[in-house]
Write a protein that binds this DNA or RNA. Structure first.
Lengths: 227, 227
DNA sequence: AACACAAGTTGCGCTGCGTGCAAATTTGCA
DNA sequence: TGCAAATTTGCACGCAGCGCAACTTGTGTT
């Protein structure tokens, strides 16, 4: 099953890639809302109609970047040991986002998108889709434990909160560092992810600047999870 | 300022209301996607063009229900005492959702929407918009405290998680009770909101069924917040 | 009350989206 | 090689969304 890259599959993947590439190029060049599906089709070397065979809208084509990104994070989550605290699994999975190769496309989308409300729709959809998949993944994990009845509320609230914290870290990081992808910038993102999950793990019990000073930027609260 | 309902304001409010009413009626009658802006305009007694003076799309018109709902919740949050633990404020604000008059329109939207991916876009947008407003509200509150520098990450992560938990409670409640608005059903919603905020406040430290049994449906973990 | 001005509504026209359909083209398989 | 299935493409249609220029209605002034 993993080794069947038939000609059809390859072509489809290539076309799909060509579409998203063309979309991103046009987004860079003309800015959001200033190009049409026909422009994309022409740039990708296909017909307008074929575009719609792959994506239902321009936004959807661009959101495929986000989808790919979140899917890989989810993949990380799934292959975590089942006996690990679930927040720790989530943290580890989110951590993989700080890799330059992975985060780079998304960061660019952020730059070009954030001001524009139109595009953010599909982005929200992508994050929401990921939330649902996390719920499934977590449900499967807990299904392994025999006795316990599965608490759907727990699953939904947890998955939603984890995703929210990931998004919060990205938002703050982007507001702070812009499109900077330098190692220093990525280190900040990494730390923001850790801190966000830390806040979540401690029930948001430590409002801004807990006791003594020490700016939260340098040595924030470590992630000393309950195990 | 509160007492200037000029004729123009009243007309606009009435038209706006007429549009959303007509939209909801058509949604009920014909189902999502089976009616046009022109239909709405006709039912509301206005021109197609005027519709677009109020809303940029059908979804936006329907989402005004959600917006109104969340806005009132936000209003509750803002008028909470500033020295109250912030999670408690959020819990109290979300609690007001369990009121039949308030939750009824939203519950109906849920019934008609949930299966349909098209509409949920604007719903997500509404929740996201509310998140941003919570961030602002919380930022203002903390700005009252003199010494502390404001931790944007804390704000974003907190607001996002609170909203996620509210959404999670609504999702689970709806999956469990459907469109049932009976007192018993609303009691369940109320309890789900409490439980969700409880999970959040305890850092999701108690996975499904902590120690001994006792189904989480009957006597779930109470909200014994840190004060 | 008549006026002028601002605010809101409406009709018109245009571009572009999204989709059903059927013909044309490409790929998989025997 | 030739047939069947999958995929691409052109065509056409209805509708969304918006700019624009009249037109109507509310507001405040003399």
């Amino acid at each position: 099953m993993p080794d069947l890259p038939s000609r059809r599959e390859l072509n489809k993947a290539a076309t799909r890639q060509a579409i998203t590439d063309a979309s991103l190029t046009l987004l860079r060049g003309k800015g959001p809302g200033n190009f049409t599906v026909e422009d994309i089709a022409e740039a990708a070397g296909i017909s307008r109609r074929t575009f719609f065979n792959y994506f239902s809208s321009i936004e959807a084509a661009l959101a495929s970047v986000t989808h790919g990104f979140l899917d890989s994070a989810l993949q990380q989550f799934r292959q975590r040991p089942a006996d690990e605290p679930i927040l720790e699994s989530a943290r580890a999975a989110l951590m993989q986002l700080a890799d330059p190769m992975t985060v780079s496309p998304l960061a660019e989308l952020f730059t070009l998108t954030q001001q524009n409300a139109l595009l953010s729709r599909s982005e929200l959809e992508a994050w929401d889709h990921c939330t649902e998949q996390i719920i499934s993944a977590a449900r499967e994990r807990f299904a392994g434990t025999p006795g316990a009845a599965i608490d759907e509320l727990y699953l939904h609230a947890l998955a939603g909160s984890v995703i929210s914290c990931g998004k919060a870290a990205m938002d703050v990081w982007f507001a702070r560092c812009g499109a900077d992808l330098s190692p220093a910038s990525l280190a900040i993102l990494r730390q923001l992810l850790i801190d966000a999950m830390g806040h979540l793990g401690s029930g948001f019990g430590n409002p801004p600047v807990p006791a003594t000073a020490s700016s939260a930027t340098d040595a924030p609260t470590l992630l000393k999870e309950r195990l």
